[in-house]
């Protein structure tokens, strides 16, 4: 049974033995972006790709590829604002709401 096929309506026969999950990183299917009360906005122009924002994200929501960051993963970003505070170039601003 794949984790995506298990939900709160699954019959007992479909619950994995011992509640084990046989795939990695299934939490990706759960969208914590819903929780946001404020949202970081990424200004690519201002970004110098220093990546100081990347390790401070508690939600692995700043995708980095080949040494460069991309826009936020809004499916998961909870809007804590740590990244905006550490950006030396003002490339991240927080706006109210989702």
């Amino acid at each position: 049974m794949k984790s995506t096929e298990i939900n709160e309506k699954s019959p007992w026969q479909d619950i994995t033995e011992g509640n084990k999950i046989f795939e990695p990183a299934t939490s990706r299917h759960f969208c914590t972006g819903e929780w946001r009360t404020s949202t970081p906005v990424f200004d690519e122009e201002k970004c110098k790709q220093c990546l100081l924002c990347f390790p401070v994200c508690p939600d692995s929501s700043i995708p980095v590829k080949d040494g460069k960051r991309d826009d936020f993963d809004y499916d998961h970003c909870k809007g804590c604002g740590i990244c905006a505070k550490v950006c030396p170039f003002g490339a991240i601003t927080m706006k109210e709401g989702k």
Binding site: G18, N19, K20, I21, F22, E23, P24, T26
Partner: peptide
């Protein structure tokens, strides 16, 4: 070949 997770909060 198959990472697994054991002992969740259910």
């Amino acid at each position: 070949k198959e990472p697994i997770a054991v002992g969740p909060y259910a």
